[in-house]
Simulated scan of single mutants.
Amino acid sequence: MAPSPNSAAEAAACPLCGTTTDKVHGYYRRRLADAPAGRAAVVLELTLRRLVCRNYDCPQ
């Protein structure tokens, strides 16, 4: 079974300046693994967005 969680939010705030952005710079995968549960491996694989701050004065 491979659930595919999705974020409901289209935009997010910049952690430095707080400007809201929905401009996607790219995607990357994050894979988290834990000890096996019985005989099944426990793995959570996420595809995450990397966003670009639209504030040109922001150092982010």
Rank of each mutant, 00 (worst) to 15 (best):
33 A>R: 14
57 D>Y: 08
36 P>M: 06
31 R>L: 05
20 T>A: 10
16 L>I: 09
50 R>F: 10
31 R>K: 14
10 E>Y: 13
55 N>S: 07
10 E>C: 13
29 R>M: 01
47 T>E: 14
13 A>H: 06
11 A>V: 00
19 T>F: 00
46 L>N: 04
4 S>I: 12
13 A>E: 10
54 R>H: 00
8 A>D: 08
35 A>N: 01
36 P>H: 09
4 S>W: 07
29 R>H: 00
3 P>Q: 10
3 P>Y: 09
31 R>G: 02
18 G>A: 03
18 G>H: 02
8 A>C: 04
15 P>G: 12
40 A>E: 13
55 N>V: 03
4 S>C: 08
44 L>E: 01
52 V>K: 13
51 L>Y: 12
2 A>H: 07
27 Y>L: 09
38 G>K: 13
9 A>M: 09
8 A>P: 05
19 T>Y: 01
11 A>P: 03
7 S>R: 07
45 E>R: 11
23 K>F: 01
18 G>E: 02
41 A>K: 15
10 E>A: 15
25 H>A: 06
40 A>V: 11
47 T>M: 05
5 P>E: 02
30 R>P: 01
26 G>W: 07
28 Y>M: 07
30 R>E: 08
46 L>Y: 09
1 M>T: 09
56 Y>M: 08
58 C>G: 03
17 C>G: 05
38 G>C: 11
2 A>S: 12
32 L>Q: 10
8 A>W: 00
51 L>W: 04
57 D>T: 14
47 T>P: 02
1 M>H: 14
37 A>F: 10
48 L>C: 14
34 D>P: 00
35 A>E: 11
10 E>I: 13
37 A>Q: 13
60 Q>W: 12
41 A>T: 15
60 Q>V: 08
28 Y>L: 13
20 T>W: 13
9 A>R: 12
8 A>N: 05
58 C>P: 03
24 V>K: 00
23 K>A: 13
40 A>I: 06
57 D>M: 09
15 P>N: 14
31 R>E: 09
34 D>V: 04
4 S>G: 10
24 V>C: 00
56 Y>L: 14
11 A>D: 06
50 R>G: 10
35 A>R: 08
33 A>C: 05
48 L>T: 10
42 V>M: 06
53 C>M: 06
29 R>Y: 00
50 R>W: 09
13 A>V: 00
1 M>S: 09
26 G>N: 05
5 P>Y: 01
4 S>P: 00
51 L>I: 04
27 Y>N: 11
56 Y>I: 11
59 P>C: 13
25 H>C: 03
40 A>Q: 11
48 L>I: 15
39 R>Q: 15
18 G>C: 04
19 T>E: 05
33 A>Q: 15
34 D>M: 07
3 P>D: 09
19 T>G: 00
32 L>G: 03
24 V>T: 02
2 A>W: 10
51 L>N: 04
48 L>D: 03
30 R>S: 04
